[in-house]
Write a protein that binds this DNA or RNA. Structure first.
Lengths: 148, 148
DNA sequence: AACACTAAAGTGCATATGCACCTATTAGCG
DNA sequence: CGCTAATAGGTGCATATGCACTTTAGTGTT
C-alpha cells in the first residue's frame, strides 16, 4: 500500500466535521426564523423545555438539556436579563431553581409558530423520508454514544 | 384534535436541538483526543484541509469549509499565532492567502493518528452500520439543504 | 479622469461552548 | 461537635459562531 498521502479527506470523512457543519446550517435556519421574536434557537429550547416544569435547579436542567452546566449558566443570562425566566432560591441554600415567568410563558406561546415554521422549512427541504431518517439516525447515534 | 398542549417536546422533536446536541457530544470526543497535540477539532480541520492546497484566500477557504467567512477569520487566529499557518498577500491587494507552514505540516502529520483515534472511538461506539447511516444521512441532508 | 458599484477582508457585538478552578453549603462520620 | 466528602453553582479563559457594519481595493461606465 502506498502511503504518501495518508492525510485523506478529513472534511468529507470526518464525522465531527460533518455533524458540526450540519449543526451550523440547521442552526442558521432556525435562528433566522426565531429572530422575528428576538430569540435564538438555544434560548427557544431553554424556554420551551422549562414550560410546565416545576422550579428546576441549574444542574438538573443542564442534564435534561444535555448541556454543560457552565454553558447553561451563561445561556440563561439573556433570558434572566429580559425577565423571561427567574432564579429562585431552592430548598437548599446552594441550589437555585429556574422558573418561567409570565412573560416567559407568553414568549413561548408567541414563538411556537415561529419555531414550527423553521421546523417545517427544514422538513420541506429534506422531504418526509430524509427528515425521518435524520431524526432516527441522530437519536440512535446519540443513544449509542451516551451508553459509552 | 385536542390542542391544549401545543408546545410539545421541542427537545425531542426539534431537529435543530437534536443536531446541536449531537454536535456537542461528538465534538467533546474529538477535542478530548486532539487535546493531546494541543488542537481543537476545528483547528485540526482547518490545518488538515489546507494541507496540499495552494495558497488559498480567506473567502474561498471559508466556502470550502462551509464556514462563515468572519468565523474563519477568527478561527485562524490561534493557528497564525502559533505559526502553523501564514497569511501571505495574494495577487490582489485586497486578498490574503492562507498557507500551511512547515510547522503546520508537521503538526498535521503528528495529529493525524490522534484524529484517527477519535474517529475510531466514535466508529466503535456506533458500530459500522450506524456509522455509515450517520454519514450517509448527514451527507444527503446537507445536500438537500444546500440546494435551497 | 470621476464616480458608482462590486469584491475581499476585518471589527464590534452578542451568543454558545466547555475545561479548570474557585466558593459556599450540606452530608456524613468519627 | 468538628473535620472531611461530596454537591451546587459561578468565574476566568479560550475558542466557536454569525450578523451588521466598516475599510480598502479593484471594475466598469460615461
Amino acid at each position: 500500500m502506498r502511503n504518501d498521502k495518508p492525510l485523506s479527506m478529513p472534511e468529507g470523512g470526518c464525522t465531527c466535521f460533518q455533524i458540526r457543519r450540519a449543526a451550523r446550517k440547521v442552526t442558521a435556519i432556525y435562528d433566522r426564523h426565531l429572530a422575528d421574536v428576538g430569540l435564538t434557537v438555544t434560548q427557544w429550547g431553554l424556554l420551551a423545555n422549562l414550560a410546565g416544569k416545576p422550579p428546576t435547579p441549574i444542574g438538573a436542567y443542564a442534564e435534561v438539556m444535555a448541556m454543560d452546566r457552565t454553558t447553561l449558566t451563561r445561556n440563561i443570562k439573556p433570558l434572566l436579563a429580559t425577565g423571561l425566566m427567574t432564579l429562585s432560591p431552592g430548598p437548599d441554600r446552594r441550589t437555585r431553581a429556574l422558573t418561567l415567568t409570565a412573560e416567559g410563558k407568553a414568549m413561548v406561546r408567541r414563538a411556537y409558530p415561529t419555531w414550527r415554521a423553521a421546523e417545517m422549512e427544514v422538513r420541506e427541504a429534506l422531504g418526509t423520508k430524509a427528515t425521518t431518517a435524520l431524526h432516527d439516525t441522530l437519536r440512535t447515534s446519540m443513544a449509542l454514544l451516551d451508553a459509552v
